[in-house]
Design a protein around this nucleic acid. Sequence first.
DNA 1: CTGTTAGCGCGTTCAT
DNA 2: ATGAACGCGCTAACAG
Lengths: 348, 348
Amino acid sequence: MTVTLADVAARARVSAATVSRVLNGNYPVAEATRERVLSAVAELDYVLNGPASSLAAATSDLVGILVNDIADPFFGIMASAVQSEISGPGGRAGGERLAVVCNTGGSPERELTYLTLLQRQRAAAVVITGGAIEDAEHAAALGAKLRRLTDAGTRVVLCGRPPAPDTGAAALAFDNRGGGRALTDHLLALGHRRIGYIAGPHERTTTRHRLEGHHEALSAAGLPARPELTVHGAYDRASGFQAIGELLRRDPDLTAIVAANDTVALGACAALRERGLRIPDDVSVAGFDDLPFSVDATPALTTVRLPLHDAGARAGRIAAGREPEPPGGVAVVSGELTVRDSTAPPRG
Amino acid sequence: MTVTLADVAARARVSAATVSRVLNGNYPVAEATRERVLSAVAELDYVLNGPASSLAAATSDLVGILVNDIADPFFGIMASAVQSEISGPGGRAGGERLAVVCNTGGSPERELTYLTLLQRQRAAAVVITGGAIEDAEHAAALGAKLRRLTDAGTRVVLCGRPPAPDTGAAALAFDNRGGGRALTDHLLALGHRRIGYIAGPHERTTTRHRLEGHHEALSAAGLPARPELTVHGAYDRASGFQAIGELLRRDPDLTAIVAANDTVALGACAALRERGLRIPDDVSVAGFDDLPFSVDATPALTTVRLPLHDAGARAGRIAAGREPEPPGGVAVVSGELTVRDSTAPPRG
DNA sequence: CTGTTAGCGCGTTCAT
DNA sequence: ATGAACGCGCTAACAG
C-alpha cells in the first residue's frame, strides 16, 4: 500500500540503511549511490514515516510553542519569529522542524497538560512565551515538569518570562519593571501627578513587574502610594474600557492613564473618547508592548517597545541549537520607551 | 531509563495490551484493573510514547494549519479558533490533538513542503487558510498533493479559500466577491465617483475576487472602468502607505479609497493624514476583514466583517471529525458590510 | 562506504 | 475481560 524505505532500497538496489543515511545526510554515502537513491525516492514518491523515524531515533522534529492565545499579536509575533528560526542543521531528514502551537489561555492546568503532550511527542524543544503565573503549587509542578523535559533532552526556552531556576530551561526575560518605570518617569517628567493604572490580571509576573516599575517611579519622585488608582483586569480591550469608568469615579481629576499593555490602552482610549475627553489634551494615555497597530492609533500611542520578533527569533535559534544559551542561562531583554502623541503635559 | 508500557504493566500486574486498552479507552476493561493501571501510570509518572503509538496505529494526533503568517491577526484568529476545536473524541489517548502551525509566507513551494512534512507526520488532518495562488502548475501540484493526503486518510479542510475540486478536500470559502461589491456599492450610494483601489498581490484568489466585486459594483452603476486607479501591493501597512502616493498622483481628486484589507487601509490612512487630508471629510477609506484593531482606528474603519473565528472553529471541528463536511464539500461564508466613521459622502 | 542485525514502544489481531 | 505474539517503518550499532 504505502511506500516504505524497503521499497526504495529495493528500487535503488541498496540496503535500507543506506537509504536512511542518504535521507538523513549524517553519514558519508558515495555520490553515485546517493543519486540512485534519490531518484528511487522521487520515482516512488516516497515520504518518510515520521513516527517510525522518531521512534527509532528517540527524538522528533517537533518544537512546541506555548502561548496564551495565538490570536493575540503579542504572542503571534513571537510564535512567528520562533517558527522562522527553528529549521536548520540538527533536525532530521531535511532539517525541517515543525512548530506545535499550544494555546494555554493562561491556564496553569492547560500549560501542564500541553507540556505533557509535548513530552509524549518527544518534542525536540519547547518555547514557553508570556509571563508566569505566581502560584507556589503550580510553580513547583511546572518546575518539575520542565526538569523532566530537559532531563529527557528536550531544550526548553522561556521567552518573555522570568527564569525558572534549577529546571535546565534557558530564559529570555523582558525587563517589564524597567519599562514600567520608564513610562511613569516620562509622565512624571511631563508634570503629571494624578496617574491611574490599569493593571493586568493578578498573579502574573508580567502584571506585577510592570506595576512595580510604576511604583518605583512614583516613590522615587516622592509621591505617595495611591492604591485606589490601580485597577486590575484582563489583558484585553474590554478591560481597558471598563477600567476607565472605575478610575474616573475614584478620581475624576486624573490627568494620565497607564495601561497594562497596548490593547488595554486602546480600550481605555475608546472609553475616554466616549466621555468626551480628548487625548492627550485632557488625559494622557500610555500602553506597553508596541504592537503594530499602536502606531496607527490616533493619537499614536506612547508605549514601551518590546522586541517581540527578535526575542522570539533568538528563542527559536536557541531551541534549535543554532545559538548557545545566554551566559548563566538567562538574558534580560530591555524595552524601549517610545514617546508618541498620546502623552503630553497636563492642562493648566 | 524511560518508563514504558511494559513497566506500567508489570507494576499493575497486567499485560501491556491491557494498559494500552485502558489508556486508549477503546476496549472494555474491568473497573478494578482499570484503576490499578491508572495508579501505576501515576506512580511511575508514565507518559505515552507518541511516535511509537502513531507508528503502530498508523495515524497521529497532529493537525496541520497552514497560514501565510501567524503574526498577522487575520491568520492568528483563524488558527486560534481551529486549535480550540480540534481536541475531542476520535483522538488517541485523551483525545487531545496538537496544532502544527506552518508559516508559508504565501510561497507555493513552502506550501507544498509543509504539506509533505505533515504527510510525513501522518497528520490526522490539515487546515489550509487564506487565499490560493493562481498558477496552473502550482495548482496541479497542490491538487495532487491534497489527493494523496486525503487518500491516506488525512482530512483536509480549506478555510477561506475556494474549493479544490477532485481532491477530497472540504472548503469553507469566503465570499470575497460579494463583500467587495457591497463595499463599493456603499461608497457609490454615498455619492463617490472617483474611487481608488489598493489591491493585494497579483495571482491570489482573494485579491482577484475582492477586485472583481469592486468592478461589478462600478459597472452596475454604469461607471467606466479606470484601471489606472487600481494599484497592487502586499497585504501590509507599507503597501497601503505607498499606494496613496501613487494613486493621488494618478488622480488628485479621488474622494474614496478601497483597500485590500484593514491593514492596508490603516497604512493608507496614515499616508493621507500625513498629507493633511482628513478622513472621511476629504477622503473616505474602507478596509476588509474587520480585524480587532479596526474599530479602534480613528475614525473607526468601514469594512467588511469576515467571521474569521467562526470559520476557523468550524474548520477545526470538520478537521477533527466532530462535524460533517458541508453538503457537496463546499460552504460559502459571507462577509457583512460594516459601516463606521471612515466613510462619508464626498465634499461639495 | 555499505550491508546485517537488532531493537525502538506500542496497537492489534487471535486466543483463552 | 485479559494475555501472547507479531509487526508497524525506521535508525543505530556492528561488521566488513
